[in-house]
Nucleic acid binder design. Structure first.
Lengths: 373, 373
DNA sequence: ATAGGCGATGTTCACGTGAACATGGTGTGG
DNA sequence: CCACACCATGTTCACGTGAACATCGCCTAT
């Protein structure tokens, strides 16, 4: 929901038709090519210009602009008319300087190339926008300490009120990083629950569901293609797999380990395909499951006839794998939403609940799993 | 490359160990839980505080902070020491207000959920960071005019020096949007080359390569699973497909149309699988190709034995499809890089080349294509 | 009728920074 | 030995905004 104080102006500005100050961005526009280039980098229209034209004080303009209630309707109209005529836009830098807050959230991450990250970021951006906050992306080139440190150093100079960190916080452990005073932190995909607010999918429960599903179908035990060491998500999924097998009194096979990529899943799958006794595989994500499927196909082992495969994430393509993949759905949108909610609460100094917020996961059964022959 | 004027401070601040002002973010830290919450939202350390401690004027501090050359070494040392002691960070809002620029680029897009978008954004973020610019994400909820307009309205209030628009600009055509004066625009994935600077992959050439590859293998003609109408990328790929077939004097079959999703590719694939004469399919992206593969498998038509399939994008998983997908690689990183480069040139009022910059695409031959029987 | 209050608007000022201009000291060339 | 140049540093100020406080006029309660 938009902060109501801003909505007044916004709604008006939206009706903006062709103001002098701006550059038109319309197809029917017949102005010269690349019209935006003609715009001089002149000083923008300030509150004072509007005040002069409207014949009021600049403070009254400010009141209109912030949606302050104590402005009489006729005055407000006059000011809004002046704003439109001049093409006035509030200067965010000045506003931020005055208010001491930036209405901006920084998002620190390694990559947008994983489904989980990009969808989480998308949800974060959507919800932040709805709350009137902008999102600044702070990419970390690689998961090395140097680069992480660099990102946080950059962060220090950035204009953000809070940060959402989407990565393994233990990468920061060896480093000492200072955050600007007052900057709040929420962490995703990590077990730093004792030090930071953490939001994450319920990895453990999801992985447990996957394994139990396979056992319930009648498989003796379940092999596991794990994610890389050092990833909490991978560790938690592997733990759940192991625990679930142990609780059911089953043998725990050796772990195959990948790096989340389909290619690494394929390599693991090739190794598994050679074990005749392997009838059920739980891959720690859908990409690796895809690689596993390919490996079994190439080795003539039918899925789900000979071997059952379960993934994790439920990426949009999973339903079109061959065969359609049984997998654990993560609600990334909800994770993003809760991150923003929690961070904003911290920024506003409202009641702060430390610890970890878990978003439920859910097994989606498709056609890659069946009873063993 | 970082603007060298900033690098001086940056390098120093990085050595920051445990400054008073900030909140420690270290594992070994034994301070109370969620330490960042203890930080009062007090006014930060300003240039004046540093000046006082160092016994110099605030202007000298500013000179050190901006890397001005006219500061004697001993003074510089003293100032840097004071900065570290106080945990000083430049206030970006004040800096932006003073300089009239924000060192920020806005990125307008609908979704991060497509491989192309998320990888392009990632590249944009990386290169912008390297140039000392931050990235602000401006999500557009849906490709409706209302939402697009809303995003641009929000943009008006945002603190950005330039904008990269990743979407079909024709969505803006019916609307009249005003951009803040001086804000520059670069567009991806659109044919607005006459109005804006445009950067895009060479869709036409890539699709041509795909079709020629299939014809060269000996296929009579090639079916096409196109992207949604209204997408320039989809249109351009379809055009290239048609043109290439016509130039080779081949029959042009009816187009199957999808919406980029694997599911839609599957539905198109089911229809194609029923046509016995269909021996070669060019899908407009890899997701739809995945769906096509599944459809052919389910219909007992071997790939590449009975039917050859080519995709577009070369998503990381394509090499692990079953069979590994022959596809057209897009260099999203390069697209992102060029966007930033071009936009920064415009922002800096350097030589401006209007029109479209095309990034080459390249066919990657894997195992989903073969000679027809 | 009048005091008191309150609502609408105006005036002042500080937020933190860095450009422009000012100052003062040192070195060098005539 | 003086004049001038040049360099390190200081002083002043404006950038655009909105909070705090001030003012003014009208309405209401007594």
């Amino acid at each position: 929901m938009l902060t109501s104080r801003r909505r007044g102006v916004k709604t008006r500005l939206r009706q903006n038709v062709q103001s002098e100050g701006g550059t038109a961005l319309a197809a029917r526009d017949t102005s010269p090519r690349t019209p935006e280039l003609s715009g001089r980098k002149k000083r923008g229209v300030s509150i004072a210009d509007v005040a002069r034209l409207a014949g009021v004080s600049s403070q009254t303009v400010s009141r209109v602009s912030t949606g302050h209630p104590r402005v009489i309707a006729s005055t407000r109209e006059r000011v809004l008319a002046a704003m439109e005529e001049l093409g006035y836009r509030p200067n965010n830098a000045a506003r931020a300087l005055r208010l001491g807050e930036f209405r901006t959230i920084g998002v620190v991450l390694f990559t947008l190339s994983t489904t989980g990250n990009s969808r989480t970021v998308e949800a974060i951006a959507d919800h932040a926008a709805a709350e009137g906050y902008a999102i600044t992306l702070i990419p970390v080139a690689s998961p090395t300490q140097d680069d992480v440190l660099g990102a946080f150093t950059r962060l220090e100079e950035l204009a953000v009120d809070g940060v959402i960190v989407i990565m393994e916080v233990h990468l920061l452990d060896a480093a000492t990083v200072t955050l600007p005073p007052g900057v709040q932190v929420v962490v995703v995909d990590s077990d730093a629950g004792d030090r930071y607010a953490v939001v994450d999918s319920d990895q453990f429960d999801g992985a447990g569901q996957a394994v139990r599903h396979l056992l319930d179908l009648g498989h003796r035990t379940v092999w596991h293609v794990a994610g890389p060491t050092g990833s909490f998500a991978a560790e938690r999924r592997a733990n759940a797999w192991r625990t679930t097998l142990q609780e059911a009194g089953r043998r725990v096979p050796a772990v195959e380990r990948g790096d989340w990529s389909a290619e690494s899943g394929y390599l693991a799958g090739v190794r598994l395909a050679e074990r005749a006794r392997c009838t059920a595989v739980f891959a720690a994500n859908d990409q690796m499951a895809l690689g596993v499927l390919r490996a079994f196909h190439e080795h003539g082992r039918a899925v789900p006839g000979d071997v059952s495969v379960v993934g994790f994430d439920d990426i949009p393509d999973a339903g079109c794998f061959y065969p359609p993949l049984t997998t654990v759905r993560q609600d990334f949108a909800e994770v993003g939403r809760r991150c923003v909610e929690r961070l904003l609460r911290q920024i506003r100094r409202e009641a702060v609940e430390p610890g970890m917020a878990l978003v439920p996961t859910r097994l989606v059964v498709r056609h890659s799993t069946a009873r063993p022959r």
